[in-house]
Design a protein around this nucleic acid. Structure first.
Lengths: 330, 330
DNA sequence: CTGTTAGCGCGTTCAC
DNA sequence: GTGAACGCGCTAACAG
């Protein structure tokens, strides 16, 4: 900056004012400054500016695994919500490990991020998130709640998700048995969905097939392997509700290998990833609008005060009927 | 920092030294400082430190679309290579738009990133990347080269990729016709692969089916739609080599709808994404090790001088035989 | 081992 | 309109 000031014979502050587009400096000088600046190859040092103004412009996105299409689509939505305001996103994967999650969060706080969108690793406890409570950085938990953490949460209406799936299975496919598959056994966010599922099964008099209640990492490959093992020892139930679309994709593959098609076993995923239309069979799913969720998270970070109710806004899920539930073969 | 210094009755610099783990300060005091620091809820301001030390610790990763599994897996690999050194990654999606790419790159440079890993948008020209040449920030182009840009490139051996695919099609499937599908028509990185494909077709006397030579966005959904249109008017060739695994997944779906199975039309993807084992049919592909590529990019950024040959290291591709080429049904 | 001083690159008064 | 001075939070020289 001093260089361009010297080159033009003006003061350093004139340059600063000119570059920030302040109208206190003459339009003519402003143009001259800009031109000289990039003639000299000068690039603005935004982090120095941020230090001085105590402003921040990068928001952290920490997810278990960006390879999961849900996380990727949410990342896209988040960026869309942030870029118009000149913000960027810093990405980090925890691989479902709480310890790397805490060290990542720590690093992000040290970087003075403007906000944090977090899909917590599976066995995250409220204590693990304590440092975030005290911090003045706006945080929002996405898609997986840690109820006792007292942190704002943006997710979906789990009860409604389950009801949409189970009602469809009962009303159009008349299933007599079903199971909920996916997620780790450990206490965590899927406990809620599983509980809703069980209660609905009981209420509708549908058999809840217990053998599918096993832990499995939340990705397609692990789900495939787990499902294959189960199918080796037991026939498929009439329906499988999967904790995520990734998991459903693995299940679809296992079912295909076992030669059971959608008319014999309906599978319904949860998420609504875009590539669900392109699987074989295409994926019937409960859409929770991953991209919108990411965008909403980005907006919520800055539109609200940080001290809000623990259970924040919910996105309304929608049933997307495709082939994997057997609707195409009926 | 001053607060914790006062609280302990020591000097500010003692605190600084203690927190950075410098052995010039007594281990006992070091511990006392650390304890008092986080008792007071103090968090280190790394960006202020970076300003002073002229060091940088976040590297930019800009990709067309993080939703593409190749990009996501590369991101994971990149993070793995970076985190041990205490570095983080800033992610940005260009959606294949050159203008948003340049504005993103500009923003990243203003943030004073430590380095940049870039998968260029499809019609990126050397001129679009000129500002990166002048910058003192290490840059590495990944997976798509912009030959005239003079920037270091990390990719795969395109000729070998094509040869692995075509040799397999000829030697084990004895195909008499084939096509290369995917990517935009525009001048760009896939020109090389397409050229190698054509020359090999000619050399082997295999018919190159021209109707598949149409532009399509590089994602599964767009590929599916394009392939479906083509299949409406023409029978499938004996083989389809797809520019990426994502594209292959879309093609698989289109083929399935047209009731042509792998024994009639072999499809081979390029990338080696992990979910390729879980598609139906599972995806035969040329593996270019996306995750390793990301990790290599991270290491290369800092192990080499920036002024290196335009065409950097290549990863050696490998054929992964699965079902989609028809090997399972033979 | 500790305290003092200066300065990283920038934004902001407040005089001129 | 312009320039001088100060400070953001931290590290790096020193001298004690």
């Amino acid at each position: 900056m001093q260089d361009v000031a010297n080159a033009l014979g003006v003061s350093l502050s004139t340059v600063s004012l000119a570059l920030s587009g302040n109208d206190v400096v003459a339009p003519a000088t402003r143009a001259r400054v800009r031109d000289e600046a990039n003639r000299l190859g000068y690039v603005y040092n935004r982090s120095a500016a941020n230090l001085r103004t105590r402003s921040r412009d990068v928001v952290g996105l920490v997810v278990p695994d960006i390879t999961n299409p849900f996380a990727a689509e949410a990342a896209l939505g988040l960026q869309d919500a942030l870029m118009p305001d000149g913000r960027m996103v810093a990405l980090a994967n925890t691989r479902e490990r709480v310890d790397t999650q805490t060290s990542i969060v720590q690093a992000l706080l040290e970087q003075r991020i403007a906000g944090l969108v977090l899909i917590p690793a599976l066995d995250t406890s409220a204590a693990d998130l304590a440092l975030l409570r005290r911090s003045d950085t706006p945080v929002i938990l996405m898609n997986r709640n840690v109820s006792e953490s007292q942190l704002p949460f943006l997710g979906t209406d789990d009860e409604r998700v389950i009801r949409l799936a189970v009602d469809h299975l009962r009303d159009v496919h008349h299933v007599t048995s079903a199971a909920y598959f996916g997620g780790l056994q450990a206490a965590g966010p899927q406990k809620a969905r599983k509980a809703h599922f069980r209660s609905l099964m009981q209420q509708y008099g549908i058999q809840d097939v217990a053998i599918w209640d096993v832990p499995s990492a939340p990705n397609a490959l692990a789900a495939y392997e787990a499902a294959r093992e189960i199918l080796r020892t037991a026939p498929a139930p009439a329906a499988l509700v999967c904790h995520s679309d990734s998991i459903a994709i693995g299940v679809l593959r296992a079912l295909n290998e076992a030669h059971v098609d959608p008319s014999e076993c309906s599978v319904i995923g949860i998420d609504g990833i875009v590539d669900g239309v392109v699987t074989v069979p295409s994926l019937t799913t409960i859409d929770v609008f991953p991209s919108d969720m990411g965008a909403m998270a980005g907006r919520l970070l800055f539109t609200q005060s940080a001290n809000q109710p623990a259970s924040g806004p919910l996105v309304t899920p929608a049933l997307r009927i495709r082939e994997s539930c057997g609707c195409a073969s009926d």
